[in-house]
Simulated scan of single mutants.
Amino acid sequence: MRTARPLQTGQPHPHTQATCAFAVAFEPADSRVEHMRRITKAELVTNAIQHGEGAVELRVEVRPCELRIAVTDGSHQKPVLRNAADGEEGGRGLQLVDAFAKEWGTSGDGRTIWCTLSLTPDGA
C-alpha cells in the first residue's frame, strides 16, 4: 500500500461550471491502461458526491509521462483508505485508486483528493 502525500499548493484552482458529462481520450489507448484511468476518475468523483459537501470540481492535467486527476468538494474531512467487509457493497473505491495510481494524496485542508497515473502502458 502506498502512503498518501499532501497536495502541492500554489496552483490556482478556479471554480468552473459543472457539466453533465465529458470524454477525454489519451494515448496510448491500451485497454488496460484506459480502464484504469476511467475507474480511478469515477471513484474519486463518486466519493466526492457521496461523502463530500457542496459543488464538486474535477481537474484533469496531462503532464510529461503522467496524468493528474484532482477532485475538490466543500468537505474538510479527508478520505480514508479502509478494508471493506466481505458483505459490504461499497468501501473499496480508494483501494482501487491506491492499486492503479502511481501516487495519491489529499490537500492539507482535506477538500481535494488527487492521484497521478502513468501515461505509459507498462506503468513505468
Score class of each variant (00 low, 15 high):
D122P: 02
T112P: 00
E88Q: 15
E43H: 15
R63M: 14
I69N: 09
D30T: 08
D30F: 08
A25D: 13
V62R: 13
R111E: 10
T40Q: 00
V60I: 15
R63L: 15
G52L: 04
C65E: 13
E89P: 00
E61V: 12
D73R: 07
A48N: 11
E57N: 01
P28W: 11
V62M: 09
E34D: 02
L67Y: 07
R38F: 05
L94P: 00
A84K: 11
A84N: 09
G87M: 03
G74K: 02
Q95R: 14
V97E: 01
R68Q: 13
C65F: 13
Q77Y: 07
V56E: 00
G74L: 03
G93K: 13
G52A: 04
R92A: 08
G87D: 12
C115V: 07
V45T: 15
P79W: 12
R92V: 07
L119F: 06
L44S: 07
D30M: 01
S31M: 03
I113D: 03
E57F: 09
V60C: 11
W104I: 08
L96W: 12
E89M: 09
T112I: 04
A85L: 10
R92D: 03
G54W: 01
T120E: 11
E66G: 05
T46K: 06
H76Q: 07
P79E: 01
I49N: 08
S118D: 08
D109G: 04
D109I: 02
E103I: 04
M36W: 11
D109P: 02
R63D: 04
